[in-house]
Structures are given as structure tokens and as C-alpha cells.
Computed example of a mutant assay.
Amino acid sequence: MVVFAHISDIHIGGSDASVARAEGVMAHLATLGLDAIVVTGDVADHALAEEYEVAAGILRAGVPLAVCPGNHDSVPEFEKRIGPANQAVRLDGLTIALADSSVPGRPYGFLADETLAWLDGVLSERPGVPAMVGMHHPPAELGIPYVDEIRLREPERLEALLRAHPNVVAVLAGHAHTGASVRFAGLPVAVAPGVVSTCLTQAETDAAFPVTYDLPPGFALHFFDGERLVTHFRPVILK
């Protein structure tokens, strides 16, 4: 059994509580028996060097950790302090490949040719080992117009790649600031809750900007037994 945590959208600098919320989540994750931690983007809010310096100090763990950029991130600044924009974790029985779906100056996502080529290479390394592909932008609609308008563009490019690699068992994403699940390319998609804030659905609010900072940060806790992915969404109550 592989057990790993999935967090997203810490947005350091995006609110007065952004640092405390991120620190609280990472402290909680350190108490769990995890095999890895993945972070699906929006590490900094304004893509400032000082925000990445703070984030680099927070995103430390005693287990393998992979991070990809989001639309609020600047890849050059990200790579100086966090690491490559495309990162992979290779565990016993599972590969997790996080790809850069950010587009400079744009809120929507897109997987460039070179990024898809990198993904293809990682997925080809261990064709007999199950793999998960992650990125910031969800490849499918989640029923939240505010988010759906800025999801991954041209998702059929990703779908073609996933279908070419039958060892891929799931897709991981962030960006939506809400725990959610959907299917894409015949695979489950797990979207992690936001750390800095929570995005509400149309059933919960009619606000044009449906984001609240009042709910606690959250994370996804994934269990993978070699065939089946089970995901639990958990809040972190800060002290």
C-alpha cells in the first residue's frame, strides 16, 4: 500500500494567514505515516522571490516530495528555489509525475509539447509500474464556472498521452481550491482542497468570486493498493 498526501494552492503571500496555514498543514502531515507528499501548484501568490524563500522553508519533509507550478507561479523564480518545473517521485510500486501546466501571464493551463514529451519519458521508464500524472489545472469541468473557465486548455492532448500509457491509473490536480473528484480519459481525477482558501460551488453561493478564507485548510490523503486509488479529504484545524 502506498500512502501519500496531496496539497495544493498554498499561495504564500496571498493572505495574512497564508504562512501559518501552510505551516500548519505541513506540521500535520509530518505526524502521518506517509510515503510521499505532492503539491500541485500555486506555491507563491505574487511569484516574488521572497515568497518562494518562505515556501522553500515550509515545503520540507522527511519523505519524497514533488511540487509543480501553478498559474500564480513564475517558473524562473520557482526553479531557483523550489526545483524543476517538472518533477517525479519514483516509489516502490508507484510513479507520480507532476507536470508544469502554467502559461506565463494567463490563468488557464496548457501542457506544452516539451512538457508532454517529458511526461511520456517518465511514464515510459517503468511501463509495468502503476503511475499517476499530476498538474495544477484540472483537465475536466468541475461544475464551478469560475474555475472551469480557466481549466486546462486542449485536454485532448493529455488524453492521448494517458491512453498511450496503460500504466497510468489516476490524475491529480489543484487550482480549484476545493476537494473534488471527476473522471477524465477513463481515469479518476482527484483535485486537492486549497490550503490558503476554499472555493464554493453554485449550490453554496451565488457570488461571482466564490472564495472564502473562513474554512480551514485541507488536503487529500491517497491510498493506492496497486490497483485502486482511495482518496479521503481532510481539514486541518489550526491551533
Score class of each variant (00 low, 15 high):
R106M: 13
V171L: 09
V182K: 14
P210D: 09
A88Y: 00
D92H: 07
D214R: 15
W118I: 10
T201Q: 07
E159N: 01
G186P: 02
E53G: 14
R228I: 10
S197P: 01
R228N: 10
I58G: 04
V196L: 14
P76L: 07
A173H: 05
R90I: 04
G83S: 06
L116C: 08
L221M: 09
F224L: 00
P145I: 10
T115E: 12
V191T: 08
V211C: 12
D45C: 12
L59D: 05
A61K: 05
G109Q: 04
G70M: 02
G57K: 10
P155S: 14
H165Q: 03
A22D: 09
E50K: 12
V89C: 08
V133L: 04
L229N: 05
G70L: 05
A164S: 15
H177I: 08
V54D: 01
V182P: 01
P130S: 11
V168Q: 03
P139T: 08
A17G: 07
V236H: 00
N167I: 09
R106V: 13
I37T: 12
H72Q: 07
A30F: 00
R60K: 15
D35N: 13
L48E: 15
S197T: 04
D100Y: 01
G62S: 14
E156R: 14
P64N: 07
Y52L: 12
G134M: 06
F223P: 01
G41N: 06
I7R: 00
P84Q: 09
G70Q: 03
L34K: 02
L158W: 03
K80L: 12
A17S: 15
T201C: 05
V189G: 09
L98F: 05
V54W: 00
F78G: 08
V39E: 00
P210Q: 02
D206E: 14
G14V: 02
V89E: 02
I150K: 13
V54M: 11
T40A: 05
L221F: 06
T201N: 06
A112Q: 14
V43Y: 04
A30D: 12
S101K: 10
H222D: 03
P217N: 10
R81S: 11
A180S: 13
P127N: 06
I96S: 04
V211G: 13
D113W: 07
L200P: 06
P130N: 07
R234H: 14
T198S: 13
V230I: 14
P139D: 09
M132L: 13
F223H: 15
T31H: 07
V54F: 09
E149V: 11
T40V: 03
